[in-house]
Design a protein around this nucleic acid. Structure first.
Length: 900
RNA sequence: GGGCGUAUAGCUCAGUGGUAGAGCACUAUGUUGACAUCGUAGGGGUCGCAAGUUCAAUCCUUGCUACGCCCACCA
């Protein structure tokens, strides 16, 4: 590949305005082609992050932008700090999602999956991936993500498949994967089983029907009634009812336990059983039991001695009514959709006089009582989930969950923010078997083969399975594939080459950090922890950082149906990737969702522009790239001061990033670059570009570029090269090492100057004087320190405070403006030019404020118990503050007295 | 029914046991050697409500209210 960067040996003058689009593509191409994302650093400490693999069908949404920005900040930071930083990237084959995309394409051409063989369909999926699968990877590049594309992974890569098969086989051999017949969450639209996590409960308007089930054989209850009333929200399931349950202690039904019900529609005889599941306080206290179509009923059925294989099933894979094994479903129901069946069943029961009407509060009768029903929906298919009796593969998640819980308890895994630990434990402690088989074509096919009797042989190849089964036994492979999350759970090590004993695995496992949204804590993070510890013997990552959702400006969740989705690429087009990234970081405070605020993105675009212009100014004044990592030697106070400010900023930034406080980190560098460097330092040095100042300014600007680079990689890289010839790109430069300290004297001096300048600006503003007016001030009896500062900073005082002279002598009599700086009060005679009343009001307001503070502190200091019980530091601080405010009050009183 | 989170300036959010900050918005003003995507200055908050702990609470405890999220089988 060719290097597209212009000759950096002769930097060109920066353009007047900063155009993000013009530089972003250029630098990304350069970095990638130069291998800058993963420089060879064999002797450096490794640092590893794996990227949550986006669905190969996906395109970049605002949540990806947040997630990947945070990761990129960390990886660029560690790379700048000299680590062997590896950010693994790739995509997920996303079984259901991808198969749906390709099927939709077929449907658009009046075609369908069943017109193809499995092999041909899978070929089509691969073709689709080759054409369209790269969308999101291109978009991650636009965001500036410095991932190791040279090793881009895909969860269906051959080596990944080997890892998946090995894990499945090993878990099976350890008894941690097994096949079982039980109720599963079935998606009738996708015609596959899904896991508990893929079911989302929605509140839907539904009904509550009550029916009379007549007792058979002339049996009557103790109270003389010849029926039992049952209630249900799903009347259609009565076609597969097998029992009626009552509570063992319920006096009303003691005499009929063991008797039989004659189900009115099917004529099936339903045994009345005693079971704790029936709650005497609810409804009639009796409940109809459909073991094949309800999770609770399944358990009741088993307790009543019904084997899963004998439980009646009344639905096909698309949830249409089929004949039950006992042949008792009347023909008119067979073939009906489940919701049509509901209507038909209710009508028939009503007609037969078995429906107990609901009487509303106005006395009107209805077939049912309206109720809000917690209804299970498939998160992908979007239709109501049907509990269905099937054979599926299950992972013994309970066993696998123990080690990850211990790892979090011991601190081997640190969850950030810590509040998520409780959620993690709560889920892990109550974890259920994980259904991992899916009735799809696209995915990792389960490595199990069956003989004619249905015995499973699980092996890494058909040959091995055949060997297990014995020669001559005819084997058929399990047609199902694995849950996508089964393979992505292996991401932290399979991407590094496992199960091969590769150098990468040794060097980069465990990973250092995982950053993910909390929404996939259970789906992905917890399962990585389970598989990682089980197969690698170590935690997958030392830290787990969970961030929130990006919400719309109104606080709502973004969704296509609401039409409030913000496209991150549109924001990048408009404001630049740097601005979007900085926004994400600045808004990412731990434990809180990020609310979209486009104006703020705009504000950070302005920040990039501000930096650009500061660099332009430096460039125009001969300030260029620094030549040393350490701070240059400096004698001028402003230079010594700004070096100290860099030292403090760096410390604060390092501390924030160590704690993964992205917001604090972003604010620290923002504040320094704009508030300290641009607003004050540049203003101070205007007019004195001597060699020392140029060296210091160039060095400070470089430190800003390096410190800001993780957040705003593009503009910083551009400026880095614009300011001079560089040995390296900024992306692989060195993190600041100032080898300098804060100079308290310089700090005090500059802070005095800042107070002076601010004081005059404020005073002029409040008195209505032109801000540009140049004045002369009198300062009688200045302290030695103040005298020295004034002597050493004439030009600055002239230019910024707009004072052409400070006379160290008593001021002439007459009306004057008085401005304080430190312990000094500068007097500017302005007889006839100022409104004396306004100046008095101004000073009185300040005096009142100082007196109020002083008084409050005095009150506290006069409180004996404060002085006795408060921490000594607090008392000392109160004394110091009091002295300061009292002195200020004295100074202002004197100023007022002088005003007359 | 459990669990968690959030309530601080008009908006979006930081924050600390010693009586509050940022960005944006707002008001006034400005082109003084980069920047109007800017400069300068200013106004604005009883830190949701109540009680408790403490010398001292916006910050700790408890209760309440409102909003949000997650988990859970009420037929």
């Amino acid at each position: 590949m060719t290097d597209t960067i212009p000759d950096t040996a002769t930097p060109e003058a920066l353009a007047k305005t900063f155009e993000p689009a013009a530089i972003e593509a250029k630098w990304y191409r350069h970095w990638e082609s130069a291998g800058a994302f993963r420089p060879a650093r064999p002797d450096a400490t490794p640092f590893t992050i794996v990227n949550p693999p986006p669905n190969v069908t996906g395109s970049l949404h605002i949540g990806h932008a947040l997630d990947n920005t945070l990761q990129d900040v960390v990886i660029r930071y560690e790379r700048l700090r000299g680590k062997d930083a590896l950010w693994v990237v790739g995509t997920d084959h996303a079984g259901i999602a991808t198969q749906m995309v390709v099927e939709r394409q077929l449907e658009a051409r009046q075609d369908k999956r069943s017109n193809y063989t499995r092999e041909d369909f899978i070929t089509k999926v691969w073709e689709w991936k080759a054409e369209s699968g790269g969308t999101i990877t291109g978009q991650l590049r636009r965001l500036g993500c410095s991932m190791d594309w040279s090793r881009e992974q895909f969860t269906m890569d051959p080596h990944f498949t080997r890892a998946v098969v090995k894990v499945f086989v090993d878990l099976f051999n350890k008894g941690l994967i097994y096949r079982d017949k039980r109720l599963v969450n079935w998606d009738p639209r996708l015609k596959t089983a899904i896991s508990d996590l893929e079911v989302e409960t929605r509140e839907m308007k539904g009904g509550f029907w009550r029916f009379r089930y007549p007792l058979a054989d002339g049996v009557v209850r103790a109270d003389g009634l010849d029926y039992i009333e049952v209630a249900t929200t799903r009347p259609e399931t009565m076609l597969a009812d097998m029992l009626v349950a009552v509570h063992p202690d319920d006096a009303r039904y003691q005499s009929v336990i063991g008797a039989e019900i004659l189900q009115p529609l099917t004529g099936r005889r339903l045994r009345v059983v005693a079971d704790d599941h029936a709650d005497p306080a609810l409804g009639s206290g009796a409940v109809k039991i459909t073991p094949g179509h309800d999770f609770n009923d399944f358990d009741v059925g088993k307790r009543a001695g019904i084997k899963p294989a004998d439980m009646l099933n009344m639905f096909d894979a698309e949830a249409r009514v089929v004949q039950t094994a006992d042949g008792l479903v009347p023909a008119e129901y067979v073939g009906l959709d489940r919701f049509d069946a509901r209507t038909a069943v209710v009508a028939a029961m009503k007609e037969g006089g078995f429906l107990v009407p609901h009487v509303d509060k106005d006395g009107a009768e209805h077939d049912f009582e309206p109720r809000t029903i917690q209804t299970p929906y498939g998160d992908r298919g979007g239709v109501v989930i049907e509990p269905w009796l099937t054979d599926q593969w299950y992972v013994d998640a309970h066993t696998l969950a123990q080690a990850p819980m211990a790892a979090v308890r011991s601190g081997a895994i640190e969850i950030v923010p810590k509040t998520w630990e409780k959620t993690f434990f709560n889920w892990m402690e109550n974890i259920q078997p994980w259904c991992v088989s899916r009735q799809l074509w696209w995915g990792h096919q389960i490595p199990a083969w069956y003989d004619a009797q249905g015995t499973a042989y699980v092996a890494d190849s058909e040959a091995t399975a055949q060997a297990l089964a014995g020669t001559g036994v005819v084997l058929t492979r399990d047609p199902d594939v694995l849950d996508t999350w089964f393979s992505s759970a292996l991401w932290p090590f399979a991407t590094l080459g496992w199960p091969d004993d590769s150098e990468l695995v040794k060097r980069h496992y465990p990973n250092d950090l995982l950053i993910s949204g909390f929404d996939i804590l259970f789906f992905w993070d917890a399962r990585m922890a389970m598989q990682g510890i089980e197969f690698m013997g170590q935690v997958p990552w030392r830290r787990l950082y969970l961030h929130g959702l990006v919400r719309a400006a109104d606080g709502q969740k973004m969704s296509k149906s609401k039409g409030n989705v913000v496209d991150p690429l549109g924001l990048i087009d408009q404001y630049g990737a740097d601005a979007l990234r900085f926004f994400m970081c600045a808004m990412e405070s731990q434990g809180r969702d990020v609310k979209m605020d486009e104006r703020r993105v705009e504000g950070y675009r302005n920040f990039a522009t501000k930096l650009w212009n500061a660099a332009r100014f430096c460039q125009a004044n001969g300030i260029a790239a620094s030549t040393t990592l350490a701070a240059p030697a400096a004698t001028h106070a402003v230079n010594r001061w700004i070096i100290g400010e860099v030292v403090e900023t760096l410390a604060a930034l390092d501390a924030a990033l160590a704690d993964l406080r992205f917001d604090a980190a972003a604010n620290v560098i923002y504040q320094f670059a704009w508030g300290t460097f641009c607003d004050w330092y540049i203003e101070f040095i205007k007019g004195n570009f001597d060699d020392e100042t140029k060296a210091v300014a160039g060095w400070v600007l470089d430190q800003i570029l390096v410190m800001l680079h993780p957040f705003m990689p593009f503009v910083t890289e551009e400026l880095w090269h614009a300011l001079g010839e560089r040995h390296d790109d900024l992306i692989v430069a060195q993190w600041p090492a100032p080898a300098a300290h804060v100079d308290p004297a310089a700090k005090a001096e500059v802070e005095w100057l800042i107070a002076l300048v601010s004081g005059f600006r404020t005073a002029k503003n409040e008195l209505g004087l032109p801000p540009g007016a140049r004045l002369e001030a009198w300062l009688p009896e200045p302290s030695e320190a103040t005298r020295a500062i004034i002597a050493g900073n004439g030009p600055v005082i002239d230019r910024l405070a707009r004072l052409s002279a400070i006379h160290l002598a008593p001021a002439p009599a007459g009306a004057a403006m008085q401005v304080g700086a430190g312990d000094a009060t500068l007097i500017v005679p302005l007889e006839g030019l100022i409104d004396v009343a306004a100046e008095r009001a101004r000073l009185e307001k300040a005096l009142a404020a100082a007196q109020k503070e002083a008084k409050a502190l005095e009150g506290r200091l006069n409180n004996a118990s404060f002085v006795e019980r408060a921490k000594p530091e607090a008392v000392d601080k109160a004394r110091a503050d009091h002295a300061h405010h009292a002195a200020e009050a004295t100074r202002l009183s004197a100023a007022l007295a002088r005003l007359g």
